[in-house]
Amino acid sequence: MTIIWSGMAIGAVYALVAIGYNIVFISQKTFNFAQASLMMLGAFITYVGIVVMQLPWWLVGIMAAIIVGLIAALEERIAIRPVKDMHNLLVTTLGASIILQGVAQLIWGGEPYRVPFFAGDQVISLFGGNVYPVELVLVAVVILLVIGLNQFSKHSLIGIALMGMSEDREAAQLRGVDVRRFAFLAFAFTGVLAGFLGLFVGPKTYAVATLGASLALKGFVVLAIGGFGSLTGTLAGGLIVGLTEALASRYIGADFANLSVFLILVVILMAKPSGLFNRQKERTV
């Protein structure tokens, strides 16, 4: 059970990355490879705020949200907006991700930092397994976030406008939606989210500069399983990837954790390229 808890928690982290991917995908049909690097930055800022500066956790959360949000906004202006072709977007967001990693390495070096969780690091015994408070909170946070975002997209005007824009950019424009501004704000929002979530992600993964690449890829697997553009799908995707990784690592060997996840990715992409939990959209003339 301890393994299940730990797998669910890491799955939740991957799902959080995938949610970031999804928001950008919904608003502008592209991917931000640097999403996970933004989260890595959030973890570092949490470390600095809580350990170095000894600030209260909520203040640290707000600080991280603002800083990372601004960085994301900058990334959109430099690496996304001027680029038209999809292949170049891949390269430029990858570049942004590498730069963030480089900056983190320059400031904090290559060693991981332990980030304390504000609600304590006392192990709890639950359903016959040991679990850290942060692991429970991570699972709760991702579920609440998905519910919240789903409600927002169904009921608020801005959410409806975003969904409309995702389906048909031109038609949304004709209903008065400033699509470029919306795309920008949605992108910056993923930064705000990534920064704030550093509070929860940092204690689980530690703050380390190389966090970006592996989180980015696992987040993508979650997305591939859950379906591009589906928020609810990320929950299932996160669960599958997290558990696979934890179980493979425990019962086959640590070297097989990534390999198993990779196999799942290949099988799913081959069998259902649009994701397991996404209904196939039929094209219309």
């Binding site: 690496a79 570049g95 942004a96 730069i99 390495q105 320059l106």
Partner: peptide, 20 residues
């Protein structure tokens, strides 16, 4: 060693944006 990643990233970012 210190700036390597930043420079590599810079090449990708600005290479992708400026001269395709």
């Amino acid at each position: 060693q210190e700036y390597g990643l930043i420079i590599t990233g810079g090449f990708l970012l600005f290479g992708g944006v400026l001269f395709s």
